[in-house]
Amino acid sequence: MKWILVFMLICATTIGDVFRSLGMRRHGEIHDFRPGAIGTVLSALGRNKYVIISTCSMAVSFFSFMKLVSIAPMSFAVPMSAATFIPETLLAKYLLKEAVDWRRWIGAGLIAIGVVFVSQ
């Protein structure tokens, strides 16, 4: 059960993050953080199909995480979610067209290994 939840968490988080990034880029940079302006932004995001897909996927991720921490320590559950680093960095490069240079690859690799160590 624990590993099924980890698998669900990783897949849902990866899909959620990539679509969230796509949706927010399509929306554009947020400049104004006054309450009225934030309401306008949230209203626009509620109609953004990428953000809607991301939110549904993040809901699956959230409930998987909730169930996981009820049967495993947080110091296991949280680092396991870092397994998303590799697929997300690959998708950032090839789907989102980001310039992922050697520093980002090495950094992401070190963090992924570090997270595995932290989960021991």
Binding site: H27, P79, F85, E88, L91, A92, I111
Partner: peptide, 19 residues
């Protein structure tokens, strides 16, 4: 908000200090 101006491949690692 962060993803509205920053790359996913940047945001993902720099927020890893949360781990």
């Amino acid at each position: 908000a962060l993803l509205s101006w920053a790359d996913l491949s940047y945001v993902l690692p720099v927020t890893a200090s949360a781990y």
